[in-house]
């Protein structure tokens, strides 16, 4: 990730393009610019030197190209902004795009619940972090909130609960309800622990995806979509967000699904190698899930079989 000024930022983009890299995310705030990029490892030294020439810094961000949901029982002051926003911020510093989400009826021990719609929204992300409270019986009673979530879930709570290890992919204890920012050394260590665990869980997910690789890399679709005017003119922050197995494109589903589905990539329709669906949040975003190579091959075989009398 490049962190510096906007001075000669275009030159940096051209350099990334020249060496066959991809800009994952560009954030400009006044005269400040941060560019999350994916570049070939052999060119890292050269890019770093160029960035230093521009007066900026470069650091590795292991969570680049992922979108993570940080979920609290509600958005009430008992859970927000600390520690949920502190966790989200530390993930963003490592390159992830984060969203903070509060459940509609997640509070309480006996009455907490999660709706199907909320589960489906969380499933759109690469991973979810559930931040619960300070009492062990409450945390143990609230495991139903995340037991049906399909994406990897990391539980962050005060005490370490018993009997929930099989319901989530990782647990970080020692972070419960807080009323002030996590700024002391032990608290910063806890945030690092959460980031490390997310990194590990997402590495496992990447390895799982590598067993049957995706037909195309999400970054290739991103390059294609950047040429599409409604996306390139989109004023929403981060109009294209990369996921490990697809993308989120922030344009309306009903209006653009056909155009996007008909785009050609490697001689195929995008709609044939990906699944396009409206985001469950609302239909102003499209979720693109890329099919695996074996899926595409299987569909090719089925099509050939149908054509063959």
């Amino acid at each position: 990730m490049y962190d510096g000024g906007v001075y000669r930022g275009e030159e940096l983009n051209e350099l990334i393009e020249d060496i066959g890299g991809v800009v994952i995310q560009t954030t400009r705030s006044s005269q400040l610019l941060s560019v999350t990029m994916s570049i070939p490892s052999e060119d890292k030294k050269m890019v770093t030197e160029f960035c230093k020439e521009l007066g900026g810094t470069v650091k590795s961000v292991p969570l680049a190209g992922t979108e993570i949901a940080v979920v609290g029982p509600t958005l009430g002051r008992h859970h927000m902004p600390h520690p949920i926003c502190d966790i989200a911020e530390s993930l963003r510093r490592q390159g992830a795009i984060t969203v903070v989400m509060g459940l509609a009826r997640g509070r309480g021990k006996l009455t907490s619940q999660i709706s199907l719609e909320e589960k489906m929204i969380i499933d759109e992300y690469d991973a979810a972090i559930f931040s619960l409270g300070n009492f062990k019986p409450c945390v143990e009673a609230k495991t139903d909130l995340f037991s049906d979530i399909r994406v990897p879930v990391i539980l962050v709570s005060g005490p370490r609960p018993d009997g929930v290890d099989d319901k989530c992919d990782g647990i970080v204890s020692g972070v419960g309800r807080k009323v002030s920012r996590m700024r002391t050394a032990p608290e910063r260590d806890k945030l690092d622990e959460i980031v490390d665990l997310v990194e590990k869980v997402l590495d496992d997910k990447r390895r799982f995806l590598d067993e049957d690789p995706l037909f195309i890399h999400p970054a290739e679709i991103k390059l294609l979509l950047e040429e599409y005017e409604p996306v390139s003119m989109c004023l929403r922050p981060a109009p294209i967000v990369l996921h490990l197995d697809g993308l989120r494109v922030k344009v309306g589903y009903e209006e653009h699904r056909e155009n996007i589905g008909n785009m050609m990539i490697y001689g195929r329709r995008l709609g044939d190698v990906c699944r396009l669906s409206p985001s469950k949040i609302n239909d102003s975003s499209i979720i693109i899930k890329i099919k695996t190579q074996s899926e595409v091959r299987q569909e090719d075989l089925e099509r050939e079989g149908a054509d063959d009398p």
């Binding site: 300070n134 009492f135 005060g158 005490p159 419960g176």
Partner: peptide, 9 residues
């Protein structure tokens, strides 16, 4: 009786 919760609260 909840040691962690007690101290934190």
């Amino acid at each position: 009786e909840d040691k962690f919760g007690g101290e934190t609260y």
